[in-house]
Amino acid sequence: MAPMMTESNNCSSNYGEVVLQQVNVLASCYIVDSTVSLKGLHYCTTGVAGAECSPFCPRARSARSQAGAWADEGGAALSIREECERFFCESMKTAFHGERNPSMNGSGLSGAYLQTPPPDDRLPDHFQQQFSDDKLPGFEVEAWLEVWDYAGGASFRAFVANDGEEKSLFVFFDLQGVMGRDLKKALMALIELADGPLDCSHVVTCIDRRIPADEAQSLSKSLQWVGFDMVTLDHWAHDLDVTSKRWMFMGMEL
């Protein structure tokens, strides 16, 4: 199985016709970066050893059309970003949008927090600095993603969080996108995407808590079989017992 192939503008129609006979596009991923530019990656199988996927060949264009992509790439980029951020719960907004004082912004984080601090002259220096900072350094979103799994019929919204030292891919398994879908090949594509082109050290699946209990249990078992475990957002939020009323988190270290 070939890795994700990046779209480019260099593709002859003749070469595309040859690739059509050798390549099967299993999944496509569209990435919007901080400059709101859009690029595409395709996860493919090849019929001939060493054959590559031509990004703008007719097959890739057809797959993109099936995914519901727009002719206006600027509009597509904005729409992908908006859809991803629509899935953010309060805990995610606090962890990834720089809102570092959960007791004041109603973030929904769970855990123990210090009560209202005493006057500054009674605090150690490091506590004075902590309470005086409006924004502590941490993870921020550097890219938003839309992923289409043609093998199982699933679709995902996702984002990449980066703190300058490591990156993590968060994938939303929302009710409408994964219910009744076969996710085996999609999981392999997501892991390859994170470990390869995105260069992430973690993958975190965000499982919709509205998914019926029996299907959620089956999904969590499948994720555990691949190597995922239950996690909280503690590592990314720099806090304790950070959970979500909307999502259940399962993570894997790459």
Rank of each mutant, 00 (worst) to 15 (best):
F88W: 13
G75E: 15
M104G: 00
F127K: 02
Y113W: 06
H97L: 15
F127W: 02
S103D: 10
R86Y: 14
Q115N: 13
A71L: 14
P119Q: 05
K135E: 12
V141L: 08
Q115F: 11
P137G: 05
S79D: 14
F131S: 02
L123Q: 10
F127A: 06
C89N: 11
S132C: 02
S107W: 02
H126P: 00
Y113P: 00
E140P: 00
S132V: 00
E82K: 13
G108V: 09
S132R: 02
K93P: 00
F87V: 07
V141P: 10
F88P: 06
F87K: 12
F88Q: 11
G108H: 08
D72N: 15
P117S: 07
A143C: 07
Y113E: 07
Q128F: 01
G138T: 05
S91I: 06
S91P: 02
A71Y: 10
S107C: 08
N105P: 00
G111M: 06
S91G: 12
E82V: 09
K93T: 05
S79M: 12
A112L: 14
F131D: 01
G138L: 04
R122E: 13
N105C: 07
F127S: 01
S107K: 01
T116Y: 10
S79C: 07
P117A: 06
A77T: 11
R81H: 12
M104H: 03
F96V: 04
G98N: 06
F96I: 05
E85D: 10
R86K: 14
Q129K: 12
A76Q: 15
C84W: 08
D120K: 08
D125P: 00
S107Q: 01
K93Y: 02
Q128N: 10
P124D: 10
C89A: 14
Y113M: 09
D125T: 07
A71T: 11
S107L: 03
I80S: 08
S110P: 01
E90M: 12
S91C: 11
I80N: 10
D121W: 11
C89D: 15
L78M: 10
F96A: 01
G74M: 10
F87N: 13
D120L: 11
D72G: 08
H97D: 13
E140R: 13
D72C: 11
